[in-house]
Design a protein around this nucleic acid. Structure first.
Lengths: 191, 191
DNA sequence: CGATTCTTTGAAAACAGTCAATCTGTGTGG
DNA sequence: CCACACAGATTGACTGTTTTCAAAGAATCG
């Protein structure tokens, strides 16, 4: 909770009353490694903020292969945006890669905070825009770069994931098989 | 302009005064095929709405290959979002695929409309969220499906693009070479 | 320790990219 | 109106990359 309040004050201007108001409606949730926060097909009724640990959002295709859409660690937001917004069943599932501590807000409280606290509303708008930019860049790199280049870009962007996330999930995130990523990595270290 | 007012009233609730206010600050722009609306490196200072015609937003990689990020036709919005928001040089360029008619708003007027007209603000927020969802789905399909599956999905989503957009640009959008797409298409029609 | 998860490796097959040539249709200028 | 140029699409032959399948080797955890 501490760290979240630091995060908020770093990202926007909030009065103490506003911070209390926000704190009053946040719920702390702890997840063990491999526990689900959201299952595919459920409606996503929350916004989550990662205090510690790491999680992934992934989709499962018809042939039962899991495809990682995003990772999230300390100070990242995470939910199934489309399901949260529309109330439709989530296309993705969310589970924990490590034991994690999260802060959750119900959709009702989230809307309330957006309405009542201008800086909160501005923050979330800016988060959405930045997600869109980031996802645009990722899309560009998947249609433009080779698997090897994407892997190195990934490591540059998220250096600590190398240790915290299993290789086969990074492969899945990059859209290549784990065998291919294993070989790419071998190449890189030999040089 | 007519069609845009129809679009607006279909998407939200606007009073006549609001519609006039919006109309008062929109600029009509016509582009010939192959003309640029935005060049890579320029700052994108406008939002555009496509009344007729079609355009593409693309990035050029170091090896001088063009990669189509998106297409836009009638009733689509288009700009370089990141540059528009941040004021940084655009990573993408925009040009016309056909002779096109657009409506433009300067950043100042756009912000003004968002501030003054709640329904306008709501509309643009919803557009951003939907873009994010759509781009998420596209990302999923690029990391999950084969080129052939993606091509058919593309045709299902945008049937008229088949006639209006050159094949090599669809290939670029899908992240495959034009030769590969040519062969995929041949396969499909033979069956 | 035993079980599970994760990573690596090899070999074959499928797939996609490159290069070069050709073919097609469109539109422009003479 | 024709000829020519040009943009776009296709094809073949070849190369290179990635997947798949199967097996085995680490690492981690209870």
């Amino acid at each position: 909770m501490e760290s979240f309040l630091h995060y908020l004050t770093a990202k926007g201007t909030f009065t103490d009353t506003e911070l209390e108001r926000i704190a009053a409606v946040t719920v702390v949730k702890k997840l063990k490694k491999r526990q689900y926060l959201l299952r595919q097909g459920e409606v996503c009724r929350f916004k989550a903020f990662v205090v510690s640990g790491s999680l992934r959002l992934y989709r499962t295709s018809d042939d039962a292969v899991e495809h990682v859409m995003r990772f999230a660690t300390e100070n990242w937001w995470l939910n199934d945006l489309e399901s949260f917004r529309s109330g439709r069943p989530a296309k993705g599932a969310i589970d924990a890669l490590e034991d994690s501590t999260l802060l959750l807000w119900s959709k009702e409280n989230w809307e309330l905070l957006k309405r009542e606290i201008p800086a909160f509303n501005a923050l979330q708008a800016s988060l959405i825009s930045r997600s869109l930019d980031a996802q645009g860049d990722r899309l560009y790199s998947t249609i433009s770069y080779s698997a090897e280049e994407r892997y190195h870009e990934f490591l540059k962007s998220f250096p600590d994931f190398y240790h915290r996330v299993p290789l086969h999930m990074i492969a899945s995130y990059l859209g290549v098989s784990r065998e291919t990523l294993s070989r790419i990595r071998k190449h890189a270290t030999v040089q």
